[in-house]
Amino acid sequence: MIGQMLDIVTTAAILYAVATGLLLVFGVMKIINFAHGGLMTLGGYAALVTTQAGLNPWLAIPAAALFGGVVGMGIERFVVRPLYNRPLDAILATWGLSIIIGQLITIAFGRGVQFAASPLNGTLDLFGESYSAYRLALVGIAAVLGIALTALLQGTRLGLETRAVIMNEDLARGLGINSGLVRFLTFTLGSALAGVAGALITPLSSVDPGMGVPWLVNAFMLVLVSGASLLSLLFACLVLGGAQVLVATHFSPVLGGLTIAVLAAVILRIRPKGFARD
């Protein structure tokens, strides 16, 4: 019972960390960034390089953010910006970028599965249950991410302007807000977060050129049911992630893997706004 609760909480935390970057980009730019999976892969390899170089595994996180962010800048400038008025094409183009990133990584690192060192090993005793220390640490990291992003959005001028662009871009522009700059910064931040997410999941799984793709669809569905709110994303991660854990343990792991996508599709059919307010 306790183990299952911990599974639900840690799964939700991982999903939250993976989906925040996508949510930010979706909120501001109204496009789904399919390169998110590729950027996660990039972050995973950044972690691999960091640990293979003998550096502290925690350094993988800023390194992944840097890689993701820089590549994100290029993507925004040269691919996403020209497709501003063609949102479905933006999905396709970012998916193409995901392919490009995957193939470049394959050429550089080979196709094989590799393993990055985990910053935390072993287990912790919690409520009489012995549980993976790293998974527990992820809950803390996801919380820090969520709080930091909320602070950024609620407490800074840039955050205020970003929220303004999310709510009503034309009105924001009329008030002197450079929405193009806001979009650029958001996409960069979203890409950096994708890199971080990739680095965070590497100790849980392996590193390979296609590692980001399986996460992409779940993250994408979570974002669609959450609208543009970090809070409803948290809710969605807990509900849908929880459902995934329950289905996986009580029925079959395979069905568990489908839970988020199928539930989200049904939720959106019944309530097109998903968990978002209004």
Binding site: V79, A93, G96, L97, I99, I100, L104, I107
Partner: peptide
């Protein structure tokens, strides 16, 4: 890689 680039 070529196909991906061409596609984008």
């Amino acid at each position: 890689l070529i196909i991906g680039t061409l596609f984008v």
